[in-house]
């Protein structure tokens, strides 16, 4: 188990303040945050390449804050793979093996696991981006690390190799059972890989939890926004399951006095030309403000008074409803579709 206890570090424009984090053994933990938030610095603090100003790093209940990186038994995989240019693939992979206790994972075995046994004699500059990243991962795994630190390992790859490498990471994690700590700015990457996700904003970790927990109850609007959650609305007062959001009354099944925000998933809102009878408790008269493409769907922005929401509809419905700016519509959604936090 890795534990960070109020870890602080200031360096240039980066500032990490009082980071507390626990990563359980065998987990795939993803640290999610925008670029320039100090994620790489956190990796360097954990690996021992940088010393913190304050705070402690614990591994299996031992304080390793002052232990030099080569004796921590962690390995780092960087975004640009950082292969040694004057060594072959085999030389790169074997580099860490020589200096550690004899590893159970042999060179051949590691190479086969990552499907790079045909590249062993090649130099890094002759490899593609995806291949380089595989070699970088192989080099790290060959040291049989107790904790694998991945610093944006997919960012430098094109879309296809990114998907491949993502599946590879998943497979390696389940095959080896090692602890992975992966930092990224990519939401998809985080949710598809992480057992647990930590959201990092402005130099601190705002919330940690399983992907489901995060999406069910984000700790604050900034987190919700970063998780790509649309229609997060501040609530002014709540009474008897009805909350007031920007002057509009909304029925929320889970609402109680303690909530400050509601979240209505855009795909749960039904748009219609006329009002209709249904079991849905919320039916709000609104007008169209605009729309934008959202992959195969369209996100239509509608407003009712001061309340603005987005609804996801198909191109076919868009045509059928003859949507134009200023059109009067009804937005319908169930009270159970209103998430409260």
């Amino acid at each position: 188990m890795l534990e960070l206890k109020s870890l602080s570090k200031r360096f240039g424009k980066f500032c990490l303040s009082k980071i507390d984090l626990t990563v359980d053994s065998g987990h795939y933990f993803v640290l999610l945050g925008p670029s320039g938030v100090g994620k790489t610095m956190l990796i360097e603090l954990i690996s021992g390449l940088t010393k913190p100003d304050r705070g402690r790093v614990l591994w299996r209940d031992c304080d390793i804050t002052r232990v030099p990186p080569e004796r921590r038994g962690f390995a780092v995989v960087y975004q640009d793979s950082a292969l040694f240019p004057h060594m072959t693939t085999a030389g790169n992979i074997a580099y860490g093996m020589k200096s550690r206790k004899p590893s159970a994972v042999g060179l051949e075995q590691t190479a086969r696991m990552l499907g790079i046994e045909h590249l062993l004699d090649r130099y890094p500059e002759t490899l593609s981006g995806g291949e380089q990243q595989r070699v970088g991962l192989a080099r790290a795994l060959a040291t049989d690390p107790e904790l694998l630190l991945l610093d944006e390992p997919l960012s430098a790859l094109d879309l296809r190799s990114r998907r491949e490498f993502r599946n590879l990471l998943k497979r390696i994690h389940s095959e080896t059972g090692k602890t992975f700590l992966h930092v990224t700015h990519d939401l998809d990457e985080a949710t598809s890989l992480g057992d647990r996700i930590g959201v990092m904003l402005n130099g601190s970790i705002r919330q940690t939890g399983t992907p489901e927990e995060l999406f069910r109850s984000p700790s604050d609007p900034d987190v919700a926004d970063f998780l790509g959650m649309r229609n997060v609305i501040a609530v002014s007062e709540t009474k008897d399951g009805i909350c007031k959001a920007n002057g509009v009354e909304i029925h929320a099944a889970a609402a109680d006095e303690s909530i400050s925000h509601i979240w209505i998933k855009p795909e749960e809102i039904v748009l219609s030309r006329a009002a209709f009878d249904s079991s849905a408790r919320n039916q709000i008269r609104c007008r169209v403000e605009g729309w934008e493409s959202s992959g195969p769907l369209l996100a239509v922005r509608v407003s009712a008074g001061d309340l603005t929401m987005s609804a996801l509809i198909t191109y076919a419905s868009f045509k059928e409803l003859a949507i134009e700016v200023g059109a009067e519509l009804y937005a319908t959604f169930k009270s159970s579709a209103v998430h409260c936090f």
């Binding site: 360097e44 690996s47 021992g48 390449l49 030099p68 990186p69 080569e70 004796r71 921590r72 038994g73 962690f74 390995a75 780092v76 960087y78 640009d80 950082a82 040694f84 240019p85 004057h86 580099y95 860490g96 200096s99 550690r100 080099r139 790290a140 040291t143 630190l149």
Partner: peptide
């Protein structure tokens, strides 16, 4: 010589002396 390469070498278990003789000086 990119500092990052030296850092990677350290994280792979190499002492500062070994990093100098196997990474920095050869490069």
């Amino acid at each position: 010589v990119p500092v990052r390469l030296e850092k990677v070498a350290r994280s792979l278990g190499a002492s500062p002396r070994r990093v100098f003789f196997t990474i920095s000086l050869p490069m």
